[in-house]
Design a binder for these strands. Sequence first.
DNA 1: TTGAAAGCGGTACCAA
DNA 2: TTGGTACCGCTTTCAA
Lengths: 327, 327
Amino acid sequence: MIKIVDVAREAGVAPSTVSRALNNHPTVGEEYVRRVKVAAEKLGYRPNGVARSLRRQSTDFIALIIPDIGNHFHTAVARGVEDVAREAGLSVLLCNSDEDAAKEATYIGVALSEKVAGVLLCPHNSDSDISLLTENSIPVVAIDRTLGENIDAVTTDSVHGAREATAHLIREGWTRPGCSAGPTDIETAKWRAQGYVEAVLAAGGEPIVEHGTFDQQGGADTAAALLDREDPPDSLFVSSEQMALGVLAELKRRGLEPGRDIGILTFDDTPWAQLIYPPMTVVEQPAYDVGAKAARMLVERIRGGSRLEARQVSLPTRLIVRGSSLR
Amino acid sequence: MIKIVDVAREAGVAPSTVSRALNNHPTVGEEYVRRVKVAAEKLGYRPNGVARSLRRQSTDFIALIIPDIGNHFHTAVARGVEDVAREAGLSVLLCNSDEDAAKEATYIGVALSEKVAGVLLCPHNSDSDISLLTENSIPVVAIDRTLGENIDAVTTDSVHGAREATAHLIREGWTRPGCSAGPTDIETAKWRAQGYVEAVLAAGGEPIVEHGTFDQQGGADTAAALLDREDPPDSLFVSSEQMALGVLAELKRRGLEPGRDIGILTFDDTPWAQLIYPPMTVVEQPAYDVGAKAARMLVERIRGGSRLEARQVSLPTRLIVRGSSLR
DNA sequence: TTGAAAGCGGTACCAA
DNA sequence: TTGGTACCGCTTTCAA
């Protein structure tokens, strides 16, 4: 392994000069820069990132802590994050927390130990303890959910999206929309249920909310519970794409056809939403942009913006009407 | 930031003893271990991973270089990798290469600079240059595609899967299957086209292969090209899930219904495959297992198995017949 | 502008 | 078994 002293010897200069030359320090003579670069090239020198990190007291890593990369929304977020990070010369540490506070805490520990430059966290809930990070001045940007007023956050306007979607159901003539909602301790799930409730109440109706896990099973369970009621809803607002998969399976099992026997729409647009029959009406979230924006904000913090006011950005959702919600 | 000397002072021992105690070195007296752990706990000591890495000449990171985390197959692979890595105390660096040799090379450089413990690479093609890694004894395991006989690889049996799928189409009574194939320079695409060709020839038919990119656009393009032929195929073997989305869109545009007007099946099972109408027949690949298995093999190499023979593991695919391929 | 040298925070060798 | 200390490779201050 070639190191800096080897290059220095080859170029006939001091190690410090090599370091400066290679890092484009302005105070190095042109002749020296050339000599150093030639020597480095000749020897195939590759700087040791670990040593640099130790000396500089900071790395070029950022940690991305999300519940599950398998979830389509988070996949897109990750893609946005990675694109911006690469652009900024940062590498992404992928951490799946599985909505598990313990795993989340473990990863926060890793982020600290490994001295990451910053953390993007989709927190299990607002109680997530990031004090270890803030105490050590490691910038944090919350994704999709918030972490209190003092922490940067990029979210989507779930309340508005859910309200708009539910109002659309009612406008279409469905008289009794129900809600397949996510876990009560997850902020986005709460927001979406809230938007739903607001819209139903505004129309003088009675909200019917069933909470379940934020996955396929949760979708199937809540759909079953709602439809097994004595006074079942005639349409469903589903809180997430993963849940929608479960809901659709349950409807299929019961021989219920969306858009005919029951109205249905869901959060998150997916590639398959328009391929199923009938095509699924969705509340689209700009997932990629959420990731990209959050990453950009984190980069700003890393580049020295610690004195900036905390910024809470909410990106707009968009209702895409397809067949499943029509009457 | 508390460091090891602080703990040493608090515990009244030498720094080396603290290090040994905290790393469960067997030669430390119980009393000392206790004192050190108490002191560390009291001061809230967190080891500095960067310093440890520099001294040990190795980190606890592995790089996962895949074309695109947005691709369902790779998402599942990533999940498998991450689960095994966490179990082994390793963190995953996420790198999207976008099937771009330059980006791939960049990330290989990062892996080297950052002294990762190992690399999982889904190579753009067999020419991918990993000499930087092998020369520096950084273990590499290829995922989904191979890197020559000397490098560990975990793949799925694409040839067999494609042959079985195409044979199924023919058995169902489709007389002229065509193939929406991926790029000619990607190994898996070649394998799948090969399996398709073998099956068609075995049945005495004429292979019709159209190559396109491994994405939605490529699916739409190849489907259009195939169907615009003077002697169009009456059924399609599609090379990947992403392509299938494009193919389906193109069929829809032309008013062709799978399983009635045209037979169709694709590689990769997805959550939506059984929700569309008709449900999609697929060749399922054990994506999660591919990632998990590859990660396990990499961990073995990292834990000192550099003298092991290179192992090439091929995981079986499974044909899942649904409606889209029936006649 | 360049060079010498002191660390960054652990680890592991060597001596006691 | 424990302590002292050199060292991992780079950056950066200080002196020349």
